[in-house]
């Protein structure tokens, strides 16, 4: 019995060490330009800060990678989140969208924040600073509604 457990642990450790050699694939940190949501709309400092900490780390070209982002399997999960996040909404390229598409994205942002679907819980679990309080949400939503 003890032998079997030992073998299993050894195998798992080998896998865990082995996957560290799979390269991580991070998005480059690009300079912001005039298409950036914050530059474009110049929100109050507090709103800009909320967007940066609670949205931009998946929905922009300026991602601040956390310390564990070089470790597998966390790197994979992060990569998947960021790829999917940017597919839906890339705030760095917000200004390049058509007016109609901008309105649609705004509406979706408002709904996702209001319904507490964003920022996703798997992210806020580790990044407590990204959690939006109820009053944060209200403030952010009110600001976004004003842009509509």
């Amino acid at each position: 019995m003890k032998k079997v457990v030992g073998v299993i642990i050894t195998l798992l450790l080998i896998v865990l060490v082995g996957i560290q050699f799979i390269p991580t694939n991070q998005n480059p940190y690009l300079p912001t330009d005039s298409n950036d949501f914050i530059i474009l709309n110049n929100p109050p400092v507090k709103i800009g800060k909320m967007l940066k900490t609670s949205c931009y780390n998946c929905h922009s070209d300026q991602i601040n990678y956390p310390w564990y982002s070089k470790l597998q399997p966390a790197a994979w999960l992060l990569e998947k989140h960021i790829r999917e996040g940017k597919e839906e909404l890339n705030l760095s390229q917000y200004g390049s969208l058509s007016g109609r598409m901008e309105k649609m994205k705004l509406e979706s942002m408002i709904k996702q924040i209001e319904q507490k679907k964003m920022p996703i819980s798997s992210y806020t679990l580790i990044h407590q600073d990204a959690i939006l309080s109820d009053s944060d949400r209200k403030e952010l939503v009110a600001y976004l509604q004003n842009l509509q």
Binding site: I9, L12, L13, L16, I19, Q72, P73, W76
Partner: peptide, 9 residues
Amino acid sequence: IAGLSFSLI
């Protein structure tokens, strides 16, 4: 822990 990370992967 090992099992958990494995299933995560």
